[in-house]
């Protein structure tokens, strides 16, 4: 018992010496944005980083007050979202489908606050104070598949996935459809590392796929995909290619990156945040960003290694998807 007491006293001492600050400052009048990352953290070279870039742009243009909270574990989502909601942020962003259930809970407890979520439609049940942003990754992946189908010399291309899950299978489904459309004779080899952070496994799988005859591999596997770039760099340039994901990844292997499937999380978050300021945000709705909205696509650097004639064909596929002539499957 004495032990308990003394430790308690000790803790009080620490609180005492460091002062008892904290508490939430309320922000009134000013436009304020909060952003909660998933466990990937702020500078994940993926959607969190992209979202933060969009929010930073709002800050620069609209003089908003912005702040981000990184989540370390899934359990952190609720406290982090709550922290912003208590502060009364004009809009609080939840980045990543992993936050879907947490956002549903918090947005119900703070019905007067506005929230946004990226990569989830909350199972179709979107509260009135939430805007759900999703991307048609399958459409962008279709274009990458078409590119791979057109560029392959071996008629074999690869897909490297992270953890087997519906979101990643959306990439796989679109990619496969694209390959098939552009080159019916081409075969797709698929491999999942069952991890988003295992570069060694990503490398081994890529090596295996290349050795089995594939000459182009598209990755949707987070950090695991770094292994693809490590592997392709050791191979003959102009013969073996990698296709990146989320952002322009050509910096990882400048001579070996054919293209990247870009997801404009920054644009989506920027657009919606700005609309929130103007009170025009589509609250209670799902907003989908596909090829049509320029929410998914490929970067300028694609032109480094892909000639105009192929680009033209890609643009043609893009138009057909936008017009609805081609329906891209979003699951396997």
């Amino acid at each position: 018992m004495r032990r308990v007491l003394s430790v308690f006293l000790f803790l009080c001492l620490v609180v005492g010496t460091t002062g008892c600050g904290g508490g939430g400052q309320t922000t009134t009048g000013k436009f304020t944005i909060g952003m909660v990352t998933d466990v990937g953290g702020l500078n994940d070279q993926s959607f969190n980083q992209s979202a933060w870039a969009g929010i930073t742009k709002v800050k620069n243009e609209q003089k908003a007050d912005i702040k981000a909270l990184e989540s370390k574990r899934d359990e952190d989502y609720i406290p982090n979202l709550t922290r912003f909601a208590r502060e009364g942020r004009s809009i609080t962003w939840a980045i990543g489908f992993k936050l879907d259930k947490a956002l549903t809970d918090v947005s119900n407890s703070f019905a007067n606050q506005k929230f946004g979520i990226v990569d989830s439609n909350l199972g179709g049940k979107i509260p009135k104070n939430v805007v759900a942003v999703t991307f048609k990754e399958h459409e962008g992946s279709f274009i990458m598949g078409a590119l791979a189908g057109l560029k392959t010399k071996t008629n074999k291309v690869g897909f490297l996935g992270g953890v087997t899950s519906p979101l990643i299978q959306k990439f796989e489904a679109g990619y496969k459809a694209g390959v098939k459309a552009a080159n019916p004779n081409a075969e797709v080899i698929t491999a999942y590392a069952e991890s988003f952070g295992d570069a060694t496994k990503g490398r081994s799988l890529s090596k295996n796929m290349f050795n089995s005859g594939a000459d182009i591999i598209f990755q949707a596997s987070g950090g695991t995909g770094k292994g693809l770039f490590d592997e392709v760099k050791t191979r003959e340039a102009g013969k073996y290619w990698a296709i990146g994901v989320d952002m322009d990844q050509s910096f990882l292997a400048p001579k070996h990156t054919l293209s990247s499937m870009i997801k404009r999380v920054d644009k989506a978050v920027y657009d919606i945040s700005k609309q929130t300021k103007e009170n025009k945000a589509p609250m209670g709705k799902q907003v989908e960003f596909g090829l049509k909205e320029n929410g998914v696509g490929y970067p300028e650097s694609t032109k480094n290694f892909v000639d105009e004639n192929v680009i033209k064909q890609l643009e043609d596929y893009k138009q057909q998807i936008i017009s609805g002539k081609i329906k891209v499957p979003s699951s396997l």
Binding site: V14, V15, T18, C20, G21, G22, G23
Partner: peptide, 11 residues
């Protein structure tokens, strides 16, 4: 440390 303790136990 103030932020740490303040946020862990005060509210």
């Amino acid at each position: 440390y103030q932020a740490l303790l303040g946020s862990a136990i005060l509210q």
